[in-house]
Amino acid sequence: RELEKFANEFKVRRIKLGYTQTNVGEALAAVHGSEFSQTTICRFENLQLSFKNACKLKAILSKWLEEAE
């Protein structure tokens, strides 16, 4: 439930900031050390990743959002 809420909020905030899914994937290299594909970001936003992978990505995306805003 919390993950679903974060995924929805993330998408809204990403769009408000003017980032595409591809931009986010590339920008994550600075935060995490490796890029993520547009497909991975899309699957996260649509809750199509495994729970374990989504939880890992949530932590990375939270950190990125803090820096982007």
Rank of each mutant, 00 (worst) to 15 (best):
residue 50 S to N: 14
residue 53 N to Y: 15
residue 8 N to M: 13
residue 31 V to N: 08
residue 41 I to N: 01
residue 22 T to R: 15
residue 33 G to K: 02
residue 13 R to D: 02
residue 37 S to F: 01
residue 51 F to M: 11
residue 29 A to P: 01
residue 18 G to N: 00
residue 22 T to A: 15
residue 59 A to G: 14
residue 55 C to Y: 13
residue 4 E to H: 05
residue 67 E to C: 09
residue 28 L to Y: 04
residue 12 V to E: 15
residue 21 Q to Y: 09
residue 14 R to C: 03
residue 13 R to A: 11
residue 23 N to R: 13
residue 10 F to G: 00
residue 12 V to R: 12
residue 4 E to M: 07
residue 47 L to M: 15
residue 60 I to H: 07
residue 61 L to K: 06
residue 28 L to A: 02
residue 16 K to D: 04
residue 47 L to K: 12
residue 59 A to K: 14
residue 12 V to G: 11
residue 28 L to M: 02
residue 2 E to S: 07
residue 37 S to I: 04
residue 29 A to Q: 12
residue 7 A to I: 15
residue 60 I to N: 08
residue 30 A to S: 11
residue 14 R to S: 00
residue 6 F to K: 03
residue 22 T to E: 15
residue 69 E to L: 04
residue 41 I to L: 06
residue 60 I to C: 08
residue 39 T to R: 12
residue 30 A to P: 07
residue 20 T to H: 00
residue 27 A to L: 09
residue 25 G to W: 13
residue 2 E to P: 07
residue 15 I to E: 13
residue 59 A to D: 14
residue 69 E to P: 07
residue 2 E to F: 00
residue 20 T to R: 00
residue 58 K to M: 11
residue 43 R to M: 15
residue 6 F to M: 03
residue 60 I to V: 13
residue 43 R to V: 00
residue 40 T to C: 06
residue 6 F to V: 00
residue 34 S to P: 15
residue 24 V to F: 01
residue 67 E to Q: 12
residue 62 S to W: 13
residue 44 F to I: 02
residue 14 R to Q: 03
residue 50 S to A: 09
residue 29 A to L: 02
residue 16 K to T: 02
residue 65 L to S: 05
residue 20 T to Y: 00
residue 34 S to H: 14
residue 58 K to F: 01
residue 4 E to P: 01
residue 37 S to L: 04
residue 30 A to M: 10
residue 42 C to S: 15
residue 17 L to G: 01
residue 54 A to P: 04
residue 36 F to C: 06
residue 61 L to W: 00
residue 59 A to Y: 09
residue 28 L to G: 04
residue 58 K to R: 11
residue 8 N to Q: 15
residue 11 K to V: 04
residue 47 L to Q: 12
residue 50 S to L: 06
residue 64 W to N: 07
residue 28 L to T: 10
residue 53 N to R: 15
residue 65 L to A: 03
residue 9 E to Y: 04
residue 67 E to A: 10
residue 67 E to T: 08
residue 37 S to V: 02
residue 46 N to G: 09
residue 66 E to S: 09
residue 60 I to D: 09
residue 15 I to G: 08
residue 45 E to I: 02
residue 48 Q to E: 13
residue 5 K to W: 05
residue 44 F to V: 00
residue 7 A to L: 00
residue 7 A to D: 03
residue 24 V to G: 03
residue 36 F to E: 00
residue 3 L to H: 05
residue 19 Y to I: 08
residue 66 E to I: 09
residue 13 R to K: 09
residue 63 K to I: 09
residue 25 G to K: 02
residue 51 F to V: 14
residue 49 L to Y: 07
residue 69 E to T: 00
residue 22 T to H: 14
residue 44 F to L: 03
residue 65 L to K: 03
residue 15 I to L: 10
residue 14 R to I: 10
residue 29 A to F: 06
residue 68 A to K: 14
residue 7 A to E: 10
residue 23 N to S: 14
residue 60 I to Y: 08
residue 16 K to E: 10
residue 24 V to I: 06
residue 59 A to E: 15
residue 20 T to K: 01
residue 18 G to D: 06
residue 11 K to E: 03
residue 37 S to K: 07
residue 17 L to I: 04
residue 10 F to K: 04
residue 34 S to L: 10
residue 13 R to V: 04
residue 44 F to G: 00
residue 22 T to L: 11
residue 34 S to R: 13
residue 60 I to M: 10
residue 68 A to D: 03
residue 69 E to C: 06
residue 39 T to Y: 07
residue 29 A to W: 01
residue 31 V to Y: 09
residue 33 G to I: 00
residue 39 T to E: 15
residue 66 E to H: 09
residue 47 L to F: 06
residue 49 L to T: 04
residue 14 R to V: 04
residue 63 K to G: 11
residue 8 N to W: 08
residue 19 Y to R: 04
residue 42 C to N: 14
residue 20 T to C: 01
residue 63 K to A: 14
residue 7 A to Q: 00
residue 2 E to C: 00
residue 52 K to V: 14
residue 51 F to C: 06
residue 58 K to I: 00
residue 60 I to F: 04
residue 52 K to T: 14
residue 17 L to R: 02
residue 67 E to G: 09
residue 64 W to E: 06
residue 67 E to F: 07
residue 65 L to T: 01
residue 45 E to W: 03
residue 55 C to H: 12
residue 39 T to F: 06
residue 68 A to T: 13
residue 6 F to L: 02
residue 40 T to N: 04
residue 22 T to I: 06
residue 65 L to Q: 01
residue 17 L to C: 05
residue 11 K to I: 07
residue 47 L to I: 02
residue 29 A to S: 12
residue 63 K to S: 12
residue 51 F to D: 13
residue 39 T to L: 10
residue 58 K to G: 05
residue 17 L to K: 02
residue 65 L to H: 01
residue 15 I to V: 10
residue 57 L to D: 04
residue 57 L to T: 10
residue 19 Y to A: 08
residue 12 V to F: 09
residue 53 N to H: 15
residue 17 L to H: 07
residue 4 E to A: 14
residue 47 L to H: 15
residue 46 N to K: 10
residue 48 Q to Y: 03
residue 5 K to I: 12
residue 39 T to Q: 15
residue 27 A to H: 11
residue 65 L to N: 00
residue 52 K to G: 11
residue 9 E to D: 14
residue 61 L to Y: 03
residue 26 E to V: 07
residue 59 A to R: 13
residue 36 F to R: 01
residue 55 C to V: 15
residue 22 T to W: 15
residue 3 L to F: 07
residue 6 F to Q: 01
residue 45 E to P: 01
residue 63 K to R: 11
residue 27 A to S: 12
residue 67 E to D: 13
residue 4 E to C: 06
residue 41 I to G: 00
residue 10 F to C: 01
residue 5 K to D: 14
residue 66 E to M: 09
residue 60 I to P: 10
residue 7 A to V: 13
residue 47 L to D: 04
residue 18 G to V: 01
residue 36 F to N: 03
residue 22 T to C: 12
residue 28 L to I: 09
residue 61 L to I: 02
residue 21 Q to M: 08
residue 12 V to M: 13
residue 55 C to E: 12
residue 61 L to A: 07
residue 9 E to S: 10
residue 24 V to E: 00
residue 35 E to M: 11
